[in-house]
Amino acid sequence: MSNTWYLYLFFAAALVFAGLLGLLAKRNLIKLLIAIEIVGKGVSLLLLSTGLAKAHILTAQALVVTYIVIEVSLVATALALIINIRRQTGGLDIRSLTRLKG
């Protein structure tokens, strides 16, 4: 099975990279969160395909389910933050968030 492992990894890497590029390029807060979701998809594909390659698909499946649950609670928190930011600043532009600087 491990001869197909690299194929999954190729696509997982593509997803993670697309997400990271999105994180760098986008300015809309919701877009940033979507980019994070794409990274998350890549990572869960990576986890599951690793389990497949090791013939440990059941364990990997358990890991992915946990990963998805974590993702949900993260997205809910982040969206609640975004709605609050929208109320405060009246926009969704990351550039309006420059009061604090590193």
Partner: peptide
């Protein structure tokens, strides 16, 4: 198709379903 039906069901129901609803709700609210 990778032999992980539970992960598949979770991905479809929770991520494609629930998270999308949350996203659309937020987009509508903002």
């Amino acid at each position: 198709r990778m032999g992980a039906p539970y992960a598949g069901v979770f991905e479809i129901s929770v991520v494609a379903g629930l998270i999308t609803v949350l996203f659309i709700l937020t987009i509508a609210l903002t």
